[in-house]
Simulated assay, not measured.
Amino acid sequence: MKEQLNEIIKHVYNKKSRNLFTFLTGAGISAESGIPTYRGVDGIWIKGTKFHKPEEFGTLKYFKENPEEVWQYSLFRKKMFEDAQPNESHREILEIENLMQDKFHLITQNIDNLHKRAGTKRIYEIHGNNREIKCSNGCKGIEKLSVEIKGKDIDEDLTEKDIELLKCKECNSWMRPNILWFDERYDEKTNKRFSALKIAKNSGVLFIVGTSGATNLPITIAETTLKYGGTIVDINTEDNLFTELIKHNKNKIIIRETSTQMLKTIREIMQNIIQE
């Protein structure tokens, strides 16, 4: 497997075109930082005696009917993200970016901000992020979440000041988190859809790390890389939807190990190739 990685990384590094090293990351990469996946243990929102699955409350429809409740959950997640720290996998990806410079791109499904806090700059957050808000009624553009709005404990209500700051200055509708919900489509403004697909088209190798491909844009990114001759390296602890996509394709490497060790190995291979 290491020989295969060395061969494909060297090949892509020496190519003149379609030579990007692209990483696609998901919730699995943040697990070591203590952030459960959205569909995991904390992926059930309990309010009073009501139990909600993410597919129910993680929608624009539910937000418009229950904005305070959804904001309570979002600010609970905000506190969790802020208390977490980037882990070794985030740091290894930063080291790879430093090695590969403009040949490197990171596409992440995570909204937790840990890649940015680790220092990664060439990053596309295709599910949005929790640092920004926008009007739920469609006014104006994307704004930064006010620093006056703090993360909350799971049973903590919004304050009057929170509510004031979370209302649109144009139409007084609720502002909403700038993230992709289950009943929404990917676009370029929030989700960098077209930018991500352009990167996929020009990727010599796409490393998939800690994501199962449960949403459609990540799968389309992988399909696009394969279509234009790139190789998929699937780094996950178990088989997933990407495995189904690539299992009969020759341009693939399937690795069933933790992200931390494999990213270190990939970084060391890249260092050796650059130094040759």
Rank of each mutant, 00 (worst) to 15 (best):
H248D: 15
M270F: 14
H52R: 07
L166F: 01
K169F: 06
V70Y: 02
E97M: 07
K198F: 11
E97P: 05
V12Q: 03
K247E: 12
C168V: 05
I266T: 08
K247W: 05
K150L: 12
G128F: 02
A31D: 05
K152D: 01
V209D: 07
S17N: 13
L206Y: 07
N272H: 13
E156Y: 09
I269E: 11
R91Y: 14
L145M: 13
V233N: 08
E268G: 14
I163R: 07
L94T: 04
C135H: 03
P36C: 04
H248M: 10
Q101E: 11
Y186S: 09
I199V: 10
K227M: 14
I111E: 12
K50A: 04
P36L: 00
Q101C: 08
E55W: 01
N113T: 11
R91M: 14
P86L: 02
I29W: 02
G26F: 00
L226F: 03
Q109R: 05
M270E: 08
N202K: 15
A214F: 10
Q271K: 08
I154N: 04
T49G: 05
M262D: 08
L197E: 15
L166W: 00
I154Y: 01
I35A: 04
G34T: 08
R122G: 15
K250R: 12
K16M: 03
K121V: 14
E68G: 04
F194D: 15
S203V: 11
F194M: 15
L114R: 04
E97F: 07
N129S: 12
E55P: 05
V209P: 11
N110C: 09
Q109E: 09
H11I: 07
K198Q: 14
S136Q: 06
K61C: 03
K116Q: 11
R131Y: 11
L99K: 11
G141R: 07
K198G: 15
V147A: 10
Q261F: 06
L145K: 06
Y38K: 00
V41H: 00
T159D: 11
R193P: 13
K78P: 01
L60T: 01
D234M: 00
K247T: 06
I246P: 05
E32N: 14
K15M: 09
T237R: 03
A222I: 04
G43K: 07
L5S: 04
Y186F: 13
N191L: 08
I163A: 09
R18W: 03
N236A: 07
H52M: 10
K144T: 04
R176Q: 06
K116R: 14
E7A: 03
I208R: 09
I29Y: 03
M270W: 11
I111V: 13
F23S: 05
E276D: 12
Y124K: 09
C135F: 01
N87I: 03
D102W: 07
N113M: 13
A118R: 00
N249P: 13
I179A: 02
H115V: 01
S136H: 00
C171E: 02
I46G: 00
I199M: 12
E3R: 15
E244D: 15
E88D: 12
